[in-house]
C-alpha cells in the first residue's frame, strides 16, 4: 500500500511537471504580446518593462527561472494587474470558488443520492421514471444554459435572488451553486440508482429479507452502504465537471472566483495568470483523483485488508 501511494505521488508530480512545461512553451507560441496593454510605451520604456518581468532573457533561461520559482510555490507576476503576484491574485479569488464548489458538491450529491435511492426502491414506478427523467435532464442540459435560465427567471423576472456579483452574503451564492449542482446531482442520482438496483437484487439482500428485516432496514442498513461505496469512484469526474462548470457559471453570475479569472486572463493574454490557474486546476483535479483512489481502499473492507486495488 505504501509503495502504491509512493508510486502514485511520483506520477502526480511527473504529470504536473509536464503540464507546467507544456503550458509554458505553449504560452510562448501564443499570438499577441503579454504586454499588449503597455503598447503606448516607447522602445526604451518597453525594454524596461520587459526586463522587469524577465521576458527579455532567452526562452530556456526564462523556463529555468519559472520552474525554479514554481518549485518554491511562486507562480510569477501578473502582466495585466500591474505588479501583482499571481499567488496573491488567485488567493483573493479562491474563497468564492471554494464556497460555490463545496455547496454545489454537497447539495448535488445529497439530493442526487436521495433521488437515486427513491428511483431504485420504487423501481419501475412513477417515482423511478420521474427521477430518471430529471437525471437525464441534469446530465444533458449544459450548465451555462441552466445558469442562464436560472438567472433569467429567478433573478431578472421574479427578482427573488441577486442577478450576480458576490456582495449579498449567502443570497449571492444560491443561484450559481444551484447551476453548478445540477451536474453532480444528476450524475450521482443515475449512479446510485444503477448500483442500488443491482444491490437490491443481490443474494445478501435476499438473505437479509429472510432474516426478517423490514424495508427500511434493508434499504439503509444493508443496501445503502454497498451502493454508496462505488460512488466514490465518480468523484473525480464530478470534480472535473465542477471546474468546467465554474468557468461559465462564475462568468454568468459575475462571481470574482478562479474560473472567472481564468476566462478573463485568456481574453487579456495574461500569460502568467493563465499558467498559474492552469496549474492550480490541474493540481486540484489530480489530487482529487489520487485521494479518491486512496479513500476507496480505506472505505471498502474488501480492498482494505487485501491491500492492493480490488
Amino acid at each position: 500500500m505504501v509503495k502504491y501511494i509512493g508510486k502514485r505521488i511520483v506520477y502526480m508530480f511527473i504529470t504536473l511537471f509536464l503540464i507546467a512545461t507544456a503550458s509554458f512553451f505553449l504560452m510562448q507560441t501564443l499570438p499577441g504580446s503579454p504586454i499588449a496593454s503597455y503598447n503606448k510605451l516607447n522602445d526604451t520604456q518597453k525594454a524596461i518593462v520587459e526586463k522587469k518581468y524577465g521576458i527579455d532573457k532567452p526562452k530556456p533561461v526564462q523556463y529555468a527561472i519559472y520552474m525554479k520559482n514554481l518549485a518554491k510555490g511562486d507562480l510569477g507576476t501578473s502582466f495585466v494587474f500591474k505588479g501583482k503576484s499571481v499567488n496573491d491574485l488567485l488567493a483573493t479569488r479562491l474563497k468564492p470558488s471554494l464556497i460555490l464548489g463545496a455547496q454545489a458538491m454537497v447539495f448535488g450529491t445529497i439530493v442526487g443520492i436521495l433521488l437515486g435511492m427513491l428511483a431504485a426502491l420504487k423501481h419501475n414506478t412513477f417515482w423511478d421514471y420521474g427521477s430518471t427523467f430529471f437525471a437525464i435532464l441534469g446530465i444533458s442540459i449544459p450548465s451555462f444554459v441552466f445558469a442562464s435560465l436560472l438567472q433569467y427567471w429567478i433573478a431578472s423576472e421574479w427578482h427573488l435572488l441577486p442577478v450576480g456579483l458576490w456582495n449579498d452574503g449567502w443570497k449571492s451564492s444560491v443561484l450559481p451553486s444551484l447551476a453548478l449542482a445540477m451536474g453532480p446531482l444528476a450524475l450521482s442520482a443515475r449512479f446510485i440508482r444503477t448500483e442500488m438496483i443491482e444491490v437490491l437484487n443481490s443474494d445478501y439482500i435476499m438473505l437479509a429479507k429472510a432474516k426478517g428485516a423490514n424495508g427500511f432496514e434493508i434499504a439503509f442498513k444493508h443496501a445503502f452502504r454497498n451502493a454508496l461505496i462505488p460512488l466514490i469512484t465518480v468523484l473525480g469526474p464530478l470534480a472535473a465537471g465542477l471546474v468546467t462548470g465554474s468557468l461559465v457559471v462564475e462568468q454568468i453570475f459575475a462571481i470574482p472566483g478562479i474560473g472567472e479569472q481564468f476566462v478573463s486572463s485568456i481574453m487579456t493574454n495574461d500569460h502568467a495568470t493563465i499558467m498559474g490557474t492552469t496549474l492550480l486546476f490541474s493540481a486540484f483535479l489530480i489530487a482529487v483523483i489520487f485521494i479518491v483512489d486512496i479513500l476507496y481502499g480505506v472505505i471498502d473492507p474488501r480492498i482494505r485488508v487485501s491491500g492492493g486495488k480490488g
Binding site: 443481490s202 443474494d203 435476499m206 429472510a210 428485516a213 444493508h222 452502504r225 454497498n226 474488501r302
Partner: peptide, 23 residues
C-alpha cells in the same frame, strides 16, 4: 417479517454472494 428468520429461516445456494460484504 416476524416469522422470517424466527420461525422459518433459509440457507441459500451460493455462500460467496449471500453475505453482506461490508458488514
Amino acid at each position: 417479517q416476524k416469522i422470517r428468520g424466527k420461525d422459518i429461516s433459509m440457507i441459500f445456494q451460493d455462500p460467496m454472494t449471500s453475505l453482506n460484504p461490508t458488514m
